[in-house]
Write a protein that binds this DNA or RNA. Structure first.
Lengths: 181, 181
DNA sequence: GGCTGTTAGTTTCATTTGAAACTAATTTCG
DNA sequence: CGAAATTAGTTTCAAATGAAACTAACAGCC
């Protein structure tokens, strides 16, 4: 172990002791973005390591499959919107998945730039397999939360995501495009 | 817009309609890992784009600074544990931050492999600056949540993170090492 | 029709990433 | 003690990433 003399604060933006000028302290372990990042990272890598490592899918590839499993047919750009993955990443994931015959594409006759993406039967099978495992993970993760807590969690995530989306605007207007999520 | 005939389920692992064999459906928009990922991504990139893009810090660099600002002195591996960043990433972030004279390192005399890391005065100034902005972002993100909701959120994140950490074990025993977070 | 601008998606290329190998210091244990 | 195993941290190298440029199809407008 290394060293010591740490300052413990137990509120973010601790109101300073009146003697000092306002210098808000960042109590990292209570800082929401940090906590979200740690939790999300933890969960994503757990699931990846355990469940779809063996299938040889990368995380973006799995995300795309998950979207398709749920919302097909969709266009690539809708996948981007829903996953927040970069369009390059999505383009490559789709290419790889098509190569493996897990995803199929049909050019939209009304607009030949777009294409409708969906899972092949084989893709559906794999999706089903991984989905079962992922849901099991989620179930275990949520064990110990009461039904009320789950409801609360649901509402909170919804609210926060809504705010976060609203607050993101600056980077040149973006289409919301998805009522749900 | 593309296409259509979507299935709407509004619960994860929807109990199947008795006529079909159990095929749990992954209702992505209700799937916790997915929602966490989207939210966390949204928040992290918002903060990055707005606040420390100008300082020229990368996300890992900022994370390291945030840890040091809060917990210095710490070793590099403790930074890894706390951020869940890869040790290579941390090593490089530290190298860059030292180059910029934002971070300083003192070799631990008791164990000359380790070093105690901390912010330089200049690093502290920058940290302080960014922290203020980040906290402001957090404040705005949490606006609209009642005090009770915030408490609930806090508890939920704590619980979930605890579970997630516990469930991660498989990948060859890991030291918990941090009571907090 | 035919410019001008926009959108869907891909390709290029320089940067970032992380697994694996490595160095160096420390600990374990016969 | 000293060989073998472990840990902190760095370097290497191949793969993943994403910003910017590009292609192709569409939309608006005169």
């Amino acid at each position: 172990m290394i060293g010591f003399n740490r300052n413990y604060f137990h509120m973010n933006a601790a109101t300073t002791p009146a003697t000092k000028p306002a210098a808000p302290m960042l109590a990292l372990e209570h800082f929401l973005p940090y906590r979200l990042s740690v939790l999300s990272q933890l969960v994503s890598t757990s699931i990846h390591d355990r469940y779809f490592q063996p299938s040889g899918l990368t995380i973006p590839q799995w995300r795309v499959m998950a979207i398709l499993g749920r919302f097909a047919p969709v266009s690539a750009s809708e996948v981007c919107d829903r996953t927040l993955l970069d369009k390059v990443t999505v383009s490559r994931a789709i290419a790889a998945l098509r190569q493996r015959r897990l995803v199929q594409r049909t050019v939209d006759p009304g607009d030949r730039r777009r294409s409708a993406l969906g899972l092949t039967p084989e893709g559906q099978r794999l999706h089903q397999q991984i989905a079962a495992l992922a849901l099991d993970y989620e179930r275990r993760l949520l064990q110990g939360l009461t039904s009320a807590e789950r409801t609360a969690l649901d509402r909170l995530l919804q609210k926060l995501t809504g705010h976060a989306r609203a607050m993101r605007m600056p980077t040149s207007a973006r289409q919301p495009r998805h009522p749900d999520t």
